[in-house]
């Protein structure tokens, strides 16, 4: 009987590449858990998040870091947020659910998304070829988070630094998404 232990493969196979002025790298151990607010449970969830993560819930269009800086809470809809944190086992949902108790409905989204970090001085020039959002720092400050569409693919754009963004796009089309981002970088390099 062969050893059938399963080894995970991140959607971009751990891709990382440096271009002139821009670095692209998969955040291959990023876990994502969606938390939905039960109807009428806003206060309870707010309290549970405060207790578990030392912060409030994110406002529309924004993300905030947990007090220990290890988790990013991203507003993803009127009664939903995404929790992003580094975690390399397939039990992220259980951890969040345990931390929040019954205050939120948790759904693992880790496998739904491919996470691509893009950083460097050329980053805005590259994203200009792809992203309809206004990424000027006045309009999209650090921590800002938005879901939009690029080359027909839905994507979250989260500003993690002055020249750094985290992009989330569907894992099934991750290779097409990477190609689109790479091409934008090359076209503007």
């Amino acid at each position: 009987m062969p050893d059938l232990t399963l080894t995970p493969t991140p959607p971009l196979d751990g891709y990382a590449q440096d271009f002139a002025g821009t670095r692209l790298a998969e955040a291959s151990e990023l876990a994502i858990v969606a938390v939905a607010t039960p109807a009428g449970g806003e206060t309870a969830l707010e309290a549970a998040v405060k207790a578990a993560y030392g912060t409030g819930t994110p406002a529309p269009g924004a993300s905030i870091l947990s007090k220990d800086g290890k988790a990013r809470l991203v507003w993803s809809g009127p009664d939903q947020m995404f929790l992003l944190f580094t975690h390399d086992a397939p039990d992220a949902e259980a951890g969040v659910a345990a931390a929040l108790g019954q205050a939120g409905y948790c759904t693992d989204q880790t496998g739904v998304w491919a996470a691509l970090e893009i950083s460097g001085p050329g980053v805005r020039g590259a994203l200009e070829r792809l992203c309809p959002l206004d990424l000027h720092p006045d309009a999209f400050a650090e921590g800002a988070a938005a879901r939009t569409v690029m080359e027909h693919m839905g994507a979250f754009v989260i500003r993690t630094g002055s020249d750094a963004f985290l992009l989330l796009s569907a894992s099934s089309s991750a290779k097409s998404f990477l190609h689109a981002v790479e091409l934008s970088v090359r076209n503007t390099a």
């Binding site: 969606a34 939905a36 109807a39 009428g40 009664d79 693992d108 880790t110 496998g111 739904v112």
Partner: peptide, 15 residues
């Protein structure tokens, strides 16, 4: 609008 029900796609999340 007042039902307590929440939806999220997990199509890509599970093989």
């Amino acid at each position: 609008p007042d039902l307590d029900v929440h939806l999220i796609s997990t199509t890509d999340g599970w093989a």
